[in-house]
């Protein structure tokens, strides 16, 4: 890992902790951004952690760009040694794979796709060496995922698979981005999953849809009354495959306030995870059983 600092105009510093994605880079970026927040540096207006990088927005009339850069560099070495663990939560997110809404959309934008002859799931299965979409779906939901960034638009979570790099599923983005994606599409691009929080443009492959809203500007949905954005970096997600009937039942129950996601508090320790991926994942998922 080699940290690279660059000014984004006169109001931002962009810090690439590593060119490639890893949980080590994620934890280092998060540690530095936490340290920046704790230090309450006058002039800092936004602190944005990302997958393997982060960005700080500042007011150069309050703190000079070079002084801001020095502050960040001084926090980097301490963050290097910070323990890479956190108390967080695991959330079970229902997914209706191969749903009719993303299917209609992927057919509509087929000419922008690498393989116009099949579906996004067929394509993802084939290039990852699975014999069928169903097999790929099992691989997709059998291990938990880690929210390594929140952003793009309106609280969209980027999710990173909690498996060794050799087992990571990887799928390119569409050749040209779509102008439409159904709300709550479960998508995939590069090595990242996502949930589209709102309807809109997008370039990720589309695998299914969740009936669980994750952004609610009206703050009426029971589990988003405190804040309109559900996810935060460090959250862990377990996909739960559901069928159409269950999708419709949950969707209605969200509206009448009788459904909330299954959530359990867990500790995540990167060293323990690296030492025993399957054991750590089994423990994480076990925590949901009691929730």
């Amino acid at each position: 890992m080699k940290t690279r600092y660059s000014f984004g105009g006169d109001e931002h510093i962009f810090v690439e902790v590593d060119e490639e994605m890893s949980l080590d880079a994620f934890f280092k970026a998060l540690s530095i951004t936490n340290a920046v927040a704790e230090k309450k540096i006058a002039g800092v207006t936004e602190i944005c952690p990302a997958n393997a990088s982060f960005q700080v927005k500042f007011d150069p009339d309050v703190i000079a760009p070079e002084a801001m850069l020095d502050e960040l560099k001084s926090l980097e070495s301490a963050a290097e040694d910070a323990p890479k663990r956190m108390t967080t939560r695991i959330i079970e997110v229902p997914v209706y794979y191969q749903d009719p809404w993303t299917h209609e959309t992927l057919m509509r934008f087929r000419e922008r796709h690498q393989d116009p002859s099949g579906t996004d799931l067929d394509y993802a299965a084939r290039i990852n060496g699975f014999s069928s979409a169903d097999e790929f779906i099992v691989a997709h939901h059998s291990n938990p995922w880690f929210v390594s960034m929140v952003g793009f638009v309106s609280g969209l979570p980027f999710l990173y698979q909690l498996v060794e790099r050799e087992r990571q599923l990887q799928v390119p983005k569409y050749l040209r981005p779509r102008t439409d994606t159904p709300k709550l599409t479960v998508g995939y691009g590069g090595c990242f999953g996502c949930i589209y929080s709102v309807r809109g443009a997008g370039g990720y492959q589309m695998f299914g849809i969740t009936p669980m809203p994750i952004f609610d500007p009206t703050q009426k949905i029971s589990y988003m009354r405190d804040f309109m954005v559900f996810f935060k970096p460090g959250d862990i997600v377990k996909w739960d495959p559901i069928d159409r009937a269950e999708h419709d039942r949950i969707e209605a129950a969200v509206q009448d306030g009788s459904w909330t996601p299954k959530i359990a508090e867990v500790d995540f320790d990167l060293a323990a995870f690296n030492a025993d991926v399957n054991g750590t994942n089994a423990q994480l998922m076990e925590a949901l059983r009691g929730a």
Binding site: G9, E11, D18, E19, C48, R165, G190
Partner: peptide
């Protein structure tokens, strides 16, 4: 291509965008 960035030369591991970038 760095792991996670994607195959197009204009791709990076998803990161933050500055205003005006």
């Amino acid at each position: 291509p760095p792991f996670g960035a994607g195959s197009d030369p204009s791709n990076i591991v998803d990161g933050c965008y500055p205003y005006g970038s």
